[in-house]
Design a protein around this nucleic acid. Structure first.
Lengths: 232, 232
DNA sequence: CGTCACCTTGACGAGTCTCAAGTTGTGTGG
DNA sequence: CCACACAACTTGAGACTCGTCAAGGTGACG
């Protein structure tokens, strides 16, 4: 897909309908385009915060700590807007899970321009608050749950975002590897694998192929996830 | 302090200088005031998201999971703006650490009014993005660090927010208990205590009283925190 | 000065990580 | 279309960190 087409996709999803042509053009002027193959880090941050729109595909935001340890901070799918920190106590990088098309802006200029368009800042704020809410939920999962509860939480969350319902369960096609899941949940790949086997043995899911997962009993999974609403 | 005085404090810190009297009054009309003693949960959420301004004192945002487990999602100090979720996979509540004065608004109405004031949404967005950045940093800490690294990270972060520099160290007066620190780091109170003792034995800090902590070697603490910038 | 909550320390066990070996998908080239 | 090769995943055994349970100490308050 060409850059103008992708920018239109961004405009349709993020900009308010009544955005002026002028603002449209100014934004397009600071926008950069990147297409990445699975596994690539599609752009260099050069120390400045970036705002990234995932036009197609899926990506992960990875934080790096000392000793090569990685933490996946968030996953993103087509239509998501991501704020990528340029510098912080930990180094961040955005990385493609599947082949991916991205539009990205220097954060400062983007927010500056946004201010002059009624409704645009509100849209970005709305997305930021939802990202904050997800990050907080993740905090609970990382801080206070067992390996099995972590995996159950992950599967429930993913089924809400990219699940396809069928008969009496949910079909998931996960673009991320076991390693990515582990890096997201603060677990090793081995522990993730063991918990998958455990849930499979309990009849809660099937794994017909590497990336495909069938969740057979959402009620039970939600209970295992330790969500307060599902518990006593 | 009276409600009008507190609201002015909110206005001075959050509203743009050129905010109209009209908007000022509309905001004041939906604002609620609460003063809480240490340990209290100052308001009921009634299922709707709230925006809370901490006018004085300090507070914690607590998420509740099943089996009575608690996770402290964030700490707040005077001048902070907090978004408190009304309903989610986990139940949230805001709780006073010290005696506290709060102004709170129903989130939906607050954001609705904010849209009409140029600059106000931008201010709220800026704060939301900083909250998101802190939450992400916390994610790394919870997911990929040992107990000692977690405590070191906590102390470094707190010294940046409420530390008072002296000679060649930083003086901290922590308003939260060891239990709160544990709930924030995903550790038990015993482990927190042991790590304090350990860091004390290494000569990195002194604890002259329960709440007061002297950080004697910030460089070493930052290295222990596992921040990428301090490491190789 | 006594009381109580908060904090510290110790011993032990459970859960997860590490290291190692084996298995199964997936994609490629014949 | 099949066979091969490699990466991704799974499974097992042992080590280690942190949680649990229990007892003891200490600072802050009336």
């Amino acid at each position: 897909m060409t850059f103008p087409d992708l920018f239109e996709r961004f405009a349709a999803q993020v900009l308010p309908p009544k955005t002026s042509d002028d603002a449209h053009q100014r934004l397009q002027a600071i926008a950069r385009y990147s297409s990445a193959r699975a596994g690539d880090a599609p752009f260099k941050e050069n120390g400045k915060d970036q705002i990234v729109f995932v036009a197609s595909g899926s990506s992960k935001l990875v934080a790096h700590a000392s000793l090569g340890r990685q933490q996946v901070v968030a996953f993103h799918f087509a239509g998501d807007l991501v704020s990528v920190p340029g510098s912080s106590a930990h180094a961040y990088s955005l990385c493609a899970l599947e082949d991916c098309e991205l539009i990205y802006f220097p954060s400062a200029e983007f927010l500056q321009l946004a201010q002059h368009e009624t409704g645009m800042v509100a849209e970005v704020l709305d997305r930021a608050l939802r990202a904050l809410a997800r990050c907080r939920e993740k905090t609970v999962t990382l801080g206070r749950k067992t390996a099995q509860e972590k995996l159950a939480s992950f599967l429930v969350t993913m089924s809400e975002r990219i699940g396809a319902e069928f008969a009496q369960g949910v079909d998931l096609d996960l673009p991320m590897s076991r390693q990515d899941i582990g890096d997201s949940l603060g677990l090793t790949i081995e522990t993730v694998s063991r918990q998958f086997s455990d849930l499979r043995a309990q009849g809660l899911l099937e794994t017909p192929s590497r990336s495909r997962i069938r969740l057979l009993d959402m009620k039970a999974l939600e209970a295992k996830a330790g969500h307060i609403r599902a518990a006593a």
